[in-house]
Structures are given as structure tokens and as C-alpha cells.
Design a protein around this nucleic acid. Structure first.
Lengths: 133, 133
DNA sequence: CTCTAAATTTGTACTCATTACAATTTTATA
DNA sequence: TATAAAATTGTAATGAGTACAAATTTAGAG
């Protein structure tokens, strides 16, 4: 993945901050909060402002290269993966894992009644690591 | 549904405020926010405090007679229906509709890898009413 | 019925994620 | 090199939710 090209292809001017933020999202795949992105990148980009992180993520979402994960209600998380998938969150260690999904399996009647634009599946519980501790 | 009995059966002392709040949840089925509950009941219960609404809903969730709907990240909504179901939210008019679900249809491998304690499905899009306007 | 302790409710102050907005800096181009 | 547009930044404001202590209500003992 050539990140500057990826951004350009989606009409996003590839500034230094934007490249770094997308790079973090894409490489870490850790569904970070704004705060985590900011704290991680701030040492590397000393002038970085949290507002820039907010602005940039909003832009990424608008342009369709990032999606939001609202698995918790007190913080938004971000995901650079765009294929249809759900999320599992361990209530003990807090890790968030991607879960492959096939929307067709649900055979929802509502898919005909409404125009569905977003489909989110959130699972919560305990991961094996925490269960065997 | 006898609400005082329902509360008592779940070890919740049926105070006036608790009865009124559960009654609202149960009868309206509108997935309200704390603010909507407060604004609706305040004229009827002039001494009502928003903290009481928060406390009461937290108690209902802890005791298992209410669940939270985190379809949006800037507000928590509440639901007195406990059977497994998802939620559809219309991005235009904001209505939230229950969507029947069968978890078995998903055949998730993760159901074996993790101990799933919560299962949430959120759909967003446009409802027929708004589409035909 | 009365007293007391526990439970419940209430109001105020606070936290913290997010947004608004204006000022500064950077970039692109004429 | 000048200028306008775009991007970044910092500060102040917003608003949902929480902490906490005071006030009120309830329940049970005597």
C-alpha cells in the first residue's frame, strides 16, 4: 500500500500529518481512539494538534477510506479496513478483534423495507487469553 | 405487565420514580435517551432529577430488565425489550426500529473462540417513509 | 406511633470527548 | 515573489455522563 497514492486516489491531499495518521491506522489495525492516535504520534510530530487528528479522521470517513467503530458509547474508534466485518471486544483486556461477516447469512426482512447504508455487528465478552488466566 | 411486580421480581424496590421510568420505557418502546425520558417525565414528576434517571437506568441494566443501545456514539439509548434483536436507525428522521434477529444465522467461528456475552446489530440507512417523500 | 438506620432521590460541581472557531502556517500557483 | 486557498493549530465552548454529599423517604424495631 502506497499511502500518499491511496489518499490522492480518494481526493485527499497527502499532507505529512494525514499520511502519518493513515499509516498508523493501517499498520496497527488496533481500532484506536483519537486520544491514542494523538498520544502515539505526538512525539514524532511535535506540533501535532488533537484538532488535526479529529479533522483528519472526519475527512477520512467522509472520503470513505476509514470507518468508525461505535462499540462503546464514550469514545469513537477508527478502522482503516473497509471490507464488511464485525468487531469483538473483550471486556477484560479491552482488545478489539475483527470478525469476518457475511450479511447474507442474516436474511433480514428489513433489507427490503429499508435502504441500508451501514451494517454494524458488535460482540462483547471474554477472549480466550483472559478466560484461561 | 404489572410493573411494580416486575421490578420486585428483579430485586428492584418499586419506587414511584422507578415505576414511572420503566413504564415509559416499556410503553413507548422508542429507545429514548436519558434527556428524552427526563424531559417527558419532569412535568409529571416536578421534583425529578436527571441524576435519578441516570441512576435508575443503570440499576435497570445491572438487574437485567433493560439494555443499552449504542447505535450513536454521542448518546446512550435504552430499551426495555430483552429478546435478541437488532436496531435500524433512519439517518433522516432518526427513528429507531427493532429488527428481529437469529444469532444462529451468523454461524460465527468466533462464537467458539470467545465467550460472547453481548451481541449487537445496528443498521443505518433510510426508512421507507423518508425514501418516498 | 416514634425513632433510627438504610435506601433513595436530588442538586451541584466536575470530567472528558468532541466541536466551534479564529489565528497561524503551509502549499500551490500565477 | 506575491497572493489566495488549504491545512494546521490552540483556545474556548458544549454537552453527556459521573462523583459526591445533602436532603428526603422508607422500612423495621421497639
Amino acid at each position: 500500500m502506497n499511502i500518499p497514492n491511496h489518499l490522492s486516489n480518494h481526493k485527499i491531499k497527502p499532507s505529512y500529518q494525514r499520511i502519518k495518521i493513515f499509516e498508523y491506522l493501517y499498520k496497527e489495525m488496533n481500532h484506536p481512539t483519537v486520544d491514542l492516535i494523538y498520544k502515539t504520534l505526538a512525539p514524532e510530530i511535535p506540533t501535532l494538534s488533537k484538532t488535526t487528528v479529529y479533522n483528519t479522521l472526519k475527512l477520512f470517513v467522509d472520503k470513505g477510506i476509514t470507518s468508525t467503530v461505535t462499540i462503546e458509547n464514550n469514545e469513537v474508534r477508527y478502522d482503516a479496513a473497509l471490507s464488511l466485518h464485525g468487531h469483538f471486544k473483550c471486556n477484560i483486556c479491552g482488545i478489539i478483534v475483527d470478525v469476518p461477516l457475511n450479511i447474507n447469512q442474516l436474511k433480514l426482512n428489513e433489507l427490503n423495507e429499508f435502504k441500508i447504508e451501514e451494517f454494524n455487528v458488535h460482540l462483547k465478552g471474554k477472549c480466550n487469553k483472559c478466560l484461561t488466566k
